[in-house]
Each structure stands twice: as C-alpha cells, then as structure tokens.
Design a protein around this nucleic acid. Structure first.
Lengths: 217, 217, 217, 217
DNA sequence: AATGAATGAGGTTTCATTCAT
DNA sequence: TATGAATGAAACCTCATTCAT
C-alpha cells in the first residue's frame, strides 16, 4: 500500500472517529447541546481540526446519519433480492431489518427522526438536506417494493402497497418513540415485551392467513 | 363583572396569546430557534413584557403543553366515565380521543414528544420538569384503565393490559411521527389514508371478535 | 388643621416611609440589589407610586442619607455650642456624637460611605450630588471647628487642627469599616471591645494630658 | 524556552492584562459599572475573548484581588519571619506593610473592601467567595501573630493581642476610607500629612515606651 | 496537518422608568 | 392619588467558525 493510500485511509478513520463522537454526544445531550467543543474533546482533536475533516457541525451529523442509513439500506436490499426465497416469512424478514438496525444503531435512528423535521431540514444548506433526504427516500422506496411483492403474492392483505408499507413503518416509528418516552418516565416494564406484542398485533392484522386466536395464548 | 375580575381575565388571555405564539413558532422553527424575540414579535409585545406573564422561555412552552394536555386528559376521562355505555365501541372511542386531540393540537403533540426526551427534561428546573411529567403520567394512567376494562370485559385480546395499552399508544405515536416525516419528504399521499388503514390493522389485531377478511374489502 | 395641611403631612409621612424602606433594603442587599420593586413592596405601594414622591431611585436614597445626616449635624452643633462647658471632656463629647449617630443610624452611615465614592457621585445628576456633598461638608466643617477649639485651648496636641480632625474622623471610619468586614468574616469577638480599645488608644494619642500607663490596666 | 512555555507565559500575561483593565475600571466606575464591554475595550480584546481567560466577570475581579492580596501576605510574612531582628521597630515595620501595599495597589484595597460586604459575598458562587475569604483571613491571621509577639515582648501595651491587632487594622482602614472620601470632596489637603499624623498618634497610643510630647513637635 | 487564540452574532434576562386608566 | 401594563436599554454569556502560526 502506497503512502497516499495510507493517508487516505487515515483520513477516513479520523472522519469516522469524529462522527462517532458526535453521534454519541447527540444521543446523550441532544442536538442543541452537541457543541463542537464536546465533539473535539471526545475525539481527542482540537476544535479547529474538526474543520479539516468537515465543513460544519451539521455536516458531521448528517454524514454520520447517512452513512449509518446505508447499512439499513443494505439490509433491506438483501431481503428484496431474496424475496422469492423468503416468500413465506416476508413480514418477519422485514421486521428483522428494523430490529437489527435499531439494535445496532439506536442513536442514528433517533438522530434521523430529529433531522427529519421540517424546521431542521429547512435550515440546512441544500447540499446537506439533499443528502439526508435522498438517503431517507431510498429506505422508503425499498420497503415499498418489498411490501408490494407481498401484496401481489397474496401474503399481505389486499390494499394499496404504498399505504400498507407506511403502516408497517408507522408501527416501527411508534415503538422507537415509546422507548424514548420510557427513558424519561423511567418506568420499568421492559420495552421488549411491548415491542413483541406490538409486532404480533401487527402481524395478525396484516398477514392474510394465520389469523387465529392462538397467537396470543 | 368587577374591574379586578376583568383584569384577571385579560391577564389569562394575554398568557394564552403568548403561549399560542410560542407554540406556533416552536412548530415552525423548532425549540432552538424559538427565541423570545420571535415570540414577542408574534404576540405583539416587547421581549420584556413576556416576563410579566412567564418566568422564562421554558415556562412558556411547558405551560402551553401542560394546559393542552389537560384537554386530552378530559377527553380520556369522558370515555372512562362512560366505559359501560361505550363497551362495544371502546377501541373506537379511545382512538377518537387521539384523533380529536391531534387534530386540534398537532403542535402540542409534537412539542410533547420533544420535551419527553431525557436531555430536555434534565436541563429543566425541577418545578417545570415535574409539571410536564405529572401531566404526561396522568394521560398514560387513564389509558391503562380504559384498556384494562376492555381486557376484563373480553373485548380486547387477553394480554397484560399495561402492555396492550402501550401498543395502542405506540401506534398513535408512530402515525404522528410519520406525519412529521411526510412534511419533510413532502410526498403527497394523504396521511388520512395511511392513518385509517393503520387503525383498521390495529383493530383487527386487537379486538377479539369481528376479525374477518371483510374489514379490508 | 386644614385639609391642605393634612395632605402635606401625609405626603411627608409617605416619603419617610419610602426612604426607610429603601435604606433597610440598601443595608441588607447593597445598592445594586436595591430595586424599585423591593422598595415598593416593603413600603406597600406600587412601583409607579414611588415616582409620585421621588423623581428617581437615587433621589430616594440620597434624600434619606441627607436627612439622617442632618441629625448628625445637630449633635455636633450641640457640642460646638457648649464647647466652653464641655472643655474638659471635649474629645469624649465628640466621640459621643459619632457613637450616638452610628448606633441610631448605622445604615445611613454605610450608605454615606457608599455614596461618597467618586464613581457614584459622578453618575448622579448634579442636583443630587450637590445635595449630598453639601451635607457631608457641613459635618466635616463642624468637626474642624470643634477640634480647632480643642487645640487652641491646649487640650489636644499642638498640630494643624484640620489634620487632627481628620485623624479622629479616620479612626471612626475605620471602626465602622471593620464592623462590616466582621460581618463577612463572621468572627465572634464583639466589636464593642475593639471599639473601646481603639478609642482609648486614640485618646491616649491625642490628649495632651492623662498619657499614663494606667489607662489600659 | 520551548513553545509551550512561551504559550503559558503569554497566557499569564494576558490574564494579568485583563485583570489590570478590570481593576482600573472598577476603581473609576465602581463594581456595577464595570462591564465586560469596558474591560474588553480597555484590554483590547473582544468581549468573547475575555471568557477564554476567565469564567465570569466576578472571577476576573476576585482573581485580581486575591492575587494582589498575596503580595500583601508576602510582605507580612517577611516581617513575621524576622520579628526578632525587627523587635524594636515592629510597629513601624507593620505599618510599612500597609503603606507599601496601599501605595502599590490602592485599587485592590478598595476593591477588597467592596467585596468584603456580606451582600456581595452572598451572591458569589461558593468557589469564588471561598477564595476571597481565605485570602482575607490569611492576612488577618498574620497580623495577629505579629502583634501577639509585640505584646509578649512588652513592646506594645498589655492588652488582648487580637483586639489590639484589630485596632491597628482599624486605623489603616480609616485612612483608606478617608482618602476615598477626599477624592469625592476633592479637597486638596494632602492625605500624606493626615496619614503621618494618624500613624504617629497611633504609635504614641500603642507603644509602651517613647510616649513623649516630642513626637509631635 | 494541527491548534491556540480570537471574535461576531445572537440568546436570555433584569430593571428603572413611563403611560393610560 | 394610585397602579397594572409595558418597554428600551443594557448586562452577561455561549458557540460555530476563522486565522495566524
């Protein structure tokens, strides 16, 4: 490996270091309290050095989000690519993507929700808002396609696939949102239980077959 | 009506004026960009005058939220009080509360979600965080009681009522969250359609009876 | 007594009420924290009403000081008028004035010291600064005259009377200043002991006669 | 000298620059009117830059005072350490400390008096109030010890050393206080004359020997 | 490449004072 | 006479960003 390549690799590693630091702080303290000062401290760089790797504070966060979202996209692609093989467990597989992603990157998920608010997006330079919107749309489109296949195949109830896809998405968003509220209200019922029940309710509502009473006994 | 009473009423009206202005800006621009300057401008007062009615910026927002949440609480109370009468439409009635509240006060709802994040609550003076947590808990508790009744009566599936209540809540949170994302992605499929479908899916998953295919045809 | 006279008397009483309130707060919280709000509260008037009796916050305080200083002036006048009668106890009598005044109006004394600082005086409207300076000068002049008499009569040591007068003044100022520091360091040695010793030391240093060891045994 | 050392030294110099500017303004305009704006202007920095060197406005002033008081402490230490050598001129030496300090740092002295007022101390963060109180106590303690030695040796009159120490202190405080009033009354008699006389009066009152009439001729 | 130093713009809050009633 | 309501001016402080080295 030549020297310029090593340079490049090192640069990429530093960028990741910074993004990780930024996201960790974002998660602990929220957007407003995610200061360049703290990011610099956590990534063991000077504040000024951050600007060698990123153009602005927002760029750090957006890049972090987009790069994590790519992982989500890959998960969904895999399901879509093998949709025929997964035919009978399609909803399970879809859910697996959500769960896997959320368990690996809950922070990214929260951050995404935060940035997907009109007021934030509006204040972003076009370049950044485009970037995050594009990455979000890709996820949404893939889900559509998977659900569409499910409807065509008669696995899911026969309704507009785009809308049905949003219903599934909705359920996931809600679960995440609840988890965050729980942290505040600090009640002890384990979220996992709620989440499992929610999924089973959803499944029972969406799958054409297997709608039996027994799923809950 | 005597003079002191009129004074009092006027004061209350001004407070509401300020809270409304604050919430509108909060909705448009987010917490961080909700400055006293803007609130003052929108409510046609001077910055200093705002401090005649509220002790701080946070107090304005929290009071606004709490006071709107009270309206939600009242809606839930009504359902709970007439639970016997509503027995066969309990889930519908519960949903009605959500829908009514959200349609009247979507802003409040978003704001509530924002403040129900640990990082915000932590930075609030105890007096204010108590106030918002108390108001949130009350809503949650009422829902529990309604759902509990539904489970006891065998209307809902037989699972832990607290968990089931959270599932319903989850669904609602998700719908709201989706709506916000939609504003960003600015896609034109009407949310109402998604919402109705989500509810029907949920109903189909939760109600013991009437689980037929026809609900979607 | 006619109605206009009663009005006048009432007005004077109100003014005194306000001045007393202001000085009490000044004493407790210092100049900066003496707000019109607090003065109004303590004198059971509205903030706006204060402006019926005084033109400004400073006017309240300056008037209070000046009017109390007049009391001091009267004490000194009495000693000066009877200087022949008091000839042999002149220093004692002078001290008596200080002590009497300070015990009656320690607040005024502190306030006077505060206002007798160039920066305060400079920022005052001429009318007010004149007023307080005039009242201060009168006190100083009277002391001069008393001490001058003492020197002429050979009771005090033979030095420039104006300077000697300042030495006595100095001693008093120091005692007061110490008392204030004590409040901060909160040490418990009673100031009275220190004060008595200071006076005896001063007397021993100033009086021509009676310079014996016994004064301290 | 390496680069980091130079950096450190420069930083220390800047801090001193800022403290000097602050104290100068404090002296001219008083605490209340000592604004960050003015300090910034005088030290040729931006307002924001001040916060690179100090955490708050009060910290600037307190640090300035404490650091100057340390100089005073050193002066006193020197006298105490050589008390045997200075035995016969102990009071002179003590006075020398006061005079030296006051002539070098009259501003600090005034500021100290200002901050040693309960209302100021009370409003300070504990960290700062501790700092200034500690520094003040040290000075007081050292004086005690010096005076105590003088009393034990029979140089000073035989009274409680702590009280006697306060009497000396009192005299000094008074002189300073007078000087400040003088500035206001703007009379031209030189303070030096008064001060010298005050000292001689005090010496005459405190020293056991040499109490002769001649000291004033 | 890296950083300490510096700052402009902007935020919340306080308070003496005025004004309409 | 009395006051509740209102405000302009000014204070302290923070932070993303730039610049000289």
């Amino acid at each position: 490996m030549g020297i310029p390549e090593r340079r490049k690799r090192e640069k990429r590693l530093r960028r990741e270091l910074v993004m990780d630091a930024a996201m960790a702080i974002f998660n602990e303290d929220g957007y407003h309290a995610t200061t360049m000062e703290k990011i610099a401290e956590r990534s063991e760089l000077s504040r000024a050095a951050l600007y060698l790797y990123f153009k602005s504070k927002d760029e750090i966060l957006i890049h972090a989000i987009v790069s994590q979202t790519d992982y989500f996209t890959r998960l969904l692609y895999e399901v879509y690519d093998h949709r025929h093989k997964f035919r009978d467990r399609l909803l399970d597989k879809l859910w697996e993507c959500f769960i896997k992603f959320y368990e690996k990157e809950p922070i990214t998920f929260n951050a995404t929700l935060y940035f997907h608010q009109s007021e934030m997006i509006r204040n972003l330079p076009k370049e950044l808002s485009d970037s995050i919107l594009r990455s979000g749309s890709q996820v949404v489109r893939l889900q559509h396609q998977i659900v569409e296949y499910g409807v065509q195949e008669g696995i899911f109830i026969q309704v507009d696939p785009r809308t049905l896809s949003e219903v599934i998405w909705t359920s996931f968003l809600g679960i995440v949102q609840l988890e965050r509220s729980k942290q505040v209200l600090s009640r002890k019922i384990h979220l996992n239980v709620t989440r499992d029940l929610a999924i089973r309710v959803l499944v029972r509502g969406i799958l054409k077959n297997k709608i039996t009473e027994e799923s809950f006994t």
